[in-house]
Nucleic acid binder design. Structure first.
Length: 434
DNA sequence: GTCCATGATTTTTC
DNA sequence: GAAAAATCATGGAC
C-alpha cells in the first residue's frame, strides 16, 4: 500500500464534524456527492489530499495558484490538525532513528592528528612543536634543523591556512544552506504540517552531510601534513654531505684506528659532537666506510696514506713531547697532558699496548680509544722509519692481500705496513675482536 | 643527462 | 643486537 493511500485510509476514520467541504475553493467538484453524506466527505478530502500530493508535479505557476487555493480552503485547519496527528504518530518511529550517533572514531583520529600537528587548535607552539619533534626524529644536525625547521613551519602554516579557509567556507555554506532549508520548511509548514522536531532533524541531516565533507577536508589535510612530514623526515631525500671538517675528523679516526675501526659508544659520541652530527650518523659513516674500504682497499690507499702521514706528524710531535716529559719527570709520574680522546698517553702505556697487539686484549677495556689511536699512528711512524713507506711508490702501503671475505674486520684489511714491529711482515693480527 | 661519491635504509648473517 | 652486505636515493662534478 502506498503512502498516499495509507494516509487517506487513516483519514477515513477521522471526524471532521463542523466543517463543510463545499464551497470557496477552485477544486474540481467531487464525483457525485452532495456534501452531506460521509462518503462524499471522504471523497472530498481525498481530492484535497490528492491535490496536495500532486502539487509538486505541476508547473510553478499552476502549483502556486493551487497552493493559494489550498491555503484559503476552509477545510485546511481541520485537515492540517489531522495531518499533524498522523505525523505525530509516525514521527515516533523516526525519533528512534534519529538518535545522536556516537562520535566517529575516524573523525576523532583526524581531529587529534590535526591538533597534534598544529593545524587545528592554537597556532603558536603547535606547529613549531611538531616541527621540533619532526626535526628531533629526523636526527639532523642542529644547524640543518633550523633551516628545515623554518621550512617545515612555513609549509605547515600554509596547509593550516588553506585548511582554515576551506573550513570557514564549508561552515558558511552549511549555515547558508541550513537557513535556506529552514525558511523553505517554514514556508511549507503553512501547507503541510512540519513540526519543529522535523526541522531540527532536517538541520541535523544537513549538518551530517556537511560534516562528512569536512571529514574529507580533514582527511586531505592530514594527508598533506603526512606528505610534508615524510618529506621532512625522510633523510634520504634531504641527504646532505657532511662538512669537509667532519669528514676529515671521521677519516682521521678511521685511518688511525685502521686495525680496529670500531669506535666505542663514548668515542662515537665524541666524534658526533666534534662533527655536529648524531651518533647514529657516526655509526652509519663507520659502517659505510668499513665496507667500502674493505671492498676496495686499492681505491682508498691514497686517502689512507694521506691521513697516515698527517696523523704520523701529529703523533711524532706527541711522542717527542712525551719522551721529553718522561725524561724531565719521574718514570712513575703519569702523563699530565692526556685528557682528550685523541691525546697521546704516556709512552709506557703505548708500549704495553703495542706489546698487546699480538694478544686478544687489543680492544680490551684497559686499552682505550686514545691509546689505540696512538698505537696505530705510532705503527705508521715506526713502519715509515723502517722503510715501509716505499709503498707510496707502487708498492701499496695498504695492500688488500689476504682480505677475509667473512664477517669481521679481519686484520687482512689492515694495511701490511702497520704491522707491529714485534711482528713479522707475514704474521697475522689477532685483533679481530669484533 | 650521466656518472660517481656518499649518507641512509633495509636485509642478511652471525 | 650489532655488524656486514646490499640497496636506495640524492648531491655534485662534468
Amino acid at each position: 500500500m502506498d503512502e498516499q493511500a495509507r494516509i487517506m485510509q487513516a483519514l477515513g476514520g477521522v471526524s471532521l464534524a463542523g466543517h463543510s467541504v463545499q464551497g470557496g475553493m477552485a477544486l474540481p467538484p467531487p464525483h457525485g456527492h452532495d456534501g452531506t453524506d460521509g462518503d462524499g466527505r471522504k471523497q472530498d478530502i481525498g481530492d484535497i489530499l490528492h491535490q496536495i500530493m500532486t502539487i509538486t508535479d505541476q508547473s510553478l505557476d499552476e502549483a502556486q495558484a493551487k497552493k493559494h487555493g489550498l491555503n484559503c480552503h476552509r477545510m485546511k485547519p481541520a485537515l492540517f490538525s489531522v495531518l499533524c496527528e498522523i505525523k505525530e504518530k509516525t514521527g515516533l518511529s523516526i525519533r528512534g532513528a534519529q538518535e545522536e550517533d556516537p562520535p566517529d572514531p575516524q573523525l576523532m583520529r583526524l581531529d587529534n592528528m590535526l591538533l597534534a600537528e598544529g593545524v587545528s587548535g592554537p597556532e603558536k607552539g603547535g606547529g613549531s612543536a611538531a616541527a621540533a619533534a619532526a626535526a628531533a626524529a629526523a636526527g639532523g644536525s642542529p644547524a640543518d634543523n633550523s633551516i628545515e625547521h623554518s621550512d617545515y613551519r612555513a609549509k605547515l602554516s600554509q596547509i593550516r591556512q588553506i585548511y582554515h579557509t576551506e573550513l570557514e567556507k564549508y561552515e558558511q555554506a552549511c549555515n547558508e544552506f541550513t537557513t535556506h532549508v529552514m525558511n523553505l520548511l517554514r514556508e511549507q509548514s503553512r501547507t503541510r504540517p512540519i513540526s519543529p522536531k522535523e526541522i531540527e532533524r532536517m538541520v541535523s541531516i544537513i549538518h551530517r552531510k556537511f560534516s562528512s565533507i569536512q571529514m574529507q577536508l580533514k582527511q586531505s589535510t592530514c594527508e598533506a601534513v603526512m606528505i610534508l612530514r615524510s618529506r621532512f623526515l625522510d633523510a634520504r631525500r634531504k641527504r646532505r654531505n657532511f662538512s669537509k671538517q667532519a669528514t676529515e675528523i671521521l677519516n682521521e679516526y678511521f685511518y688511525s684506528h685502521l686495525s680496529n675501526p670500531y669506535p666505542s659508544e663514548e668515542a662515537k659520541e665524541e666524534l658526533a659532537k666534534k662533527c655536529s652530527i648524531t651518533v647514529s650518523q657516526v655509526s652509519n659513516w663507520f659502517g659505510n666506510k668499513r665496507i667500502r674500504y674493505k671492498k676496495n682497499i686499492g681505491k682508498f690507499q691514497e686517502e689512507a696514506n694521506l691521513y697516515a702521514a698527517k696523523t704520523a706528524v701529529t703523533a711524532a710531535h706527541a711522542v717527542a713531547a712525551a719522551v721529553q716529559n718522561s725524561q724531565t719527570n719521574s718514570p712513575t709520574t703519569p702523563n699530565s697532558g692526556s685528557s682528550g680522546s685523541f691525546n697521546l698517553p704516556n709512552s709506557g702505556d703505548m708500549f704495553m699496548s703495542m706489546q698487546n697487539l699480538n694478544g686478544d686484549s687489543y680492544q680490551g677495556a684497559h686499552v682505550g680509544a686514545n691509546v689505540q689511536s696512538q698505537v696505530d699512528t705510532l705503527r705508521h711512524v715506526i713502519s715509515q722509519t723502517a722503510g715501509y713507506n716505499d709503498a707510496l711508490g707502487g708498492n701499496p702501503m695498504y695492500s688488500p692481500h689476504g682480505l677475509n671475505g667473512n664477517r669481521g674486520w679481519h686484520d687482512a684489511a689492515t694495511p701490511s705496513s702497520v704491522i707491529s714491529p714485534t711482528e713479522g711482515p707475514g704474521s697475522v693480527h689477532s685483533d679481530t675482536s669484533n
